[in-house]
Design a protein around this nucleic acid. Structure first.
Lengths: 232, 232
DNA sequence: ATACTGCTGACAAAAATTGTCAGCAGCCCG
DNA sequence: CGGGCTGCTGACAATTTTTGTCAGCAGTAT
């Protein structure tokens, strides 16, 4: 196995563990001596991987992802850039910043002629009215990732305020509004919550009992079976 | 210079040339023997680069782009995927396919936990009504890239058909309609053409006299100065 | 204090990369 | 047709890089 292959392999191994792993173990898994492993880690760090090592604990790959070298066609790059621009303009603050960052990273390595071609595909987003948000979407995404229960106060269509505990598992982007998709403990059913109507939210330490994936699957099945309107 | 650095360097050199380059020349530019260059080319090809070599001519890097290894944060990956999904649903056929392909490439190298997290951020595009297109957008993009004049027949707001020669330099994406931005020889001014109203188009071999970039800059300046409505 | 851990330097063995030389095949032009 | 380009592959020795072993220093947890 060549050196570069082994480095990618090491990344994969690091990703598998979510907790700190000792260098010794990593060395065994990649089939290499401990000394060489230290050198490999240094190589990856030099290439930009966010690997942290602490004495007495081990190595952790900070959340994120390193893309291996990949080939994209001209149109695929265009699609990526166009999409990122849309997110940069239409996403909530955090995601918009992330999209802009990703865009900058990609643009910095594009050859001039391709960069030109991208400047010629502007995303003309119509009205640039800021979309009001009742709540920080970053926090909602965090709750989704961690599969945490959420206590929210929500204003429904009729203007009534209600408090409920929900199991959030998806965040949707319609044209103008963003919708949090969750299981509602109050109604014992799936509900969609417009994020601009969520007044406040508190993330619980408690993990909800079902897997996010399973919830998503059920919700999708229900969507396809009986596409109904948004209910309170 | 390490081997991997040299390979990236070789890609850059190949990109600079738009015409076939001989291996000998590439070897000189990367400071390596001809034999090693052949080996380097083989390495790049093995990594997925679309490099073609023809006896008697030289090497050409097929249009497209190879991304070097890059680190993205979790939210940056989310932004990329969300954007690609939007393009996959809202773009015209060709671009939609390209977005789906790019998405598949990225997904194939994502670690499982990140892939899950992405499944939890579905893009819920509202009405999935197919947007009617009068003309193949791929062809329009090709004309833009090549800075070619375009003869089109266009139906304006009042339903009147007109033929004109335009210099297309940008393609815009509003919410529901796509707009070709071009210099109109008939009006001697910038005009926007809804793509669903373009009945037919013929790409000319003739290159238009101004640079696309310059047109874009002027158009933007005009946009900012006097944001007016679409005119025929 | 002990046993973990990360991290760095030195040096010889092992492995990969590289250059040189050689030869074969396809394309273009006179 | 031949000659001059080009891409491409094999073999082999020289060179460079990578690797393993040994050693030592520093930080953390128990």
């Amino acid at each position: 196995m060549s050196r570069s292959e082994r480095l990618l392999d090491l990344l994969q191994v690091l990703r598998r563990y979510r907790q700190p792993v000792s260098g010794r173990r990593l060395a065994e898994e990649t089939g290499v001596s401990l000394r060489t492993l230290y050198r490999d880690i240094a190589s990856l760090q030099a290439q930009g991987a966010h690997i942290e090592g602490e004495p007495g604990l081990g190595y952790v790959l900070k959340p994120g992802f390193m893309l291996p070298p990949m080939m994209f066609s001209e149109e695929e790059v265009e699609a990526l850039v166009l999409g990122s621009r849309w997110v940069a303009k239409r996403g909530d603050n955090r995601l918009a910043v992330a999209a802009a960052d990703a865009l900058a990273k990609i643009a910095s390595v594009l050859p001039p002629y391709l960069r030109e071609s991208l400047d010629a595909s502007p995303l003309l987003v119509g009205p640039r009215q800021p979309i009001p948000e009742g709540i920080d979407l970053g926090m909602l995404r965090k709750a989704i990732r961690g599969e945490r229960k959420l206590d929210i106060s929500y204003i429904d269509n009729d203007g009534h305020d209600s408090r409920r505990t929900i199991w959030p598992f998806a965040l949707g982007f319609f044209e103008q509004v963003r919708v949090l998709v969750a299981w509602c403990e109050l109604r014992q059913d799936f509900r969609h919550f417009r994020t601009d109507r969520i007044n406040g939210a508190l993330m619980s330490d408690q993990r909800y009992p079902r897997r996010r994936q399973a919830l998503l699957k059920d919700w999708r099945a229900e969507q396809n079976a009986a596409p109904g309107a948004e209910r309170g």
